[in-house]
């Protein structure tokens, strides 16, 4: 697994629950102190063990934990860069949803070795979308559920989300887009943030 994925998990646990909790998770998962480096690769099982340990330490079920992770990734100030990259997907939440088909391709353009899930978005009816997610580790659907909630807020859209089990390990998020311009949302300018 790419270090960025593990590092995102680490950032989420530290920024949300503090260093002490993170240390506890590391020790429960029998991982060395210090944690992950974002530019290195790690065995897939380590990511699974961190999720398992965090779920036990925080008394949260796996789905809730991963949903919170998704929300954190696109709404926490420390992850502003990621939110910006997602906003390149479209000018409205509607456009953004359509752009999810391109998300993995875009990410691989920047980081060819990133373990991105296979994503397919289907525009089912007037205001209903279904996102299908397939990834090495179970739970990516929950991460996207939380992430899409955060993005709807970001765009100021009102939408309802529901997780569904698909076939053969596929996970689905069903999106009911009620109102595109429900609130003002957060600002986004194309230019501006390259250090």
């Amino acid at each position: 697994m790419h270090g960025l994925v593990n590092r995102a998990l680490q950032g989420f646990l530290i920024d949300t629950y503090g260093e002490v909790t993170w240390d506890e998770v590391l020790s429960q998962a029998a991982l060395p102190a210090g944690g992950f480096e974002s530019m290195l690769h790690y065995e897939d099982r380590l990511t699974g063990e961190v999720i398992l340990a965090a779920s036990a330490v925080l008394h949260k079920d796996r789905c809730t934990l991963l949903e919170d992770l998704g929300t954190y990734l696109l709404s926490h100030p420390n992850q502003e860069g990621l939110r910006r990259l997602m906003r390149f997907g479209g000018d409205t939440f509607f456009d953004f949803l359509q752009s999810l088909d391109d998300l993995s391709g875009r990410a691989r353009l920047a980081l060819p070795d990133l373990d991105m899930p296979d994503l397919t978005i289907q525009h089912d009816s007037h205001n209903r979308f279904v996102l299908s997610v397939r990834w090495g580790l179970p739970g990516a659907g929950s991460v996207f559920l939380g992430a899409l909630r955060a993005m709807a807020d970001d765009y100021g859209a009102l939408a309802f989300f529901e997780a569904e089990e698909g076939e053969d390990g596929e996970e689905r998020v069903v999106i009911d887009l009620v109102d595109q311009s429900f609130a003002s949302g957060r600002s986004f300018t194309l230019g501006g943030r390259v250090a």
Binding site: S38, A110, V194, A195
Partner: peptide, 21 residues
């Protein structure tokens, strides 16, 4: 152009991470 802007920003973020490492 938008893809270029995206790439430029993503690359800058990756370069930052590499520099930190």
């Amino acid at each position: 152009t938008v893809d270029l802007l995206y790439l430029r920003e993503a690359n800058a973020a990756i370069a930052r991470e590499s520099r930190k490492l």
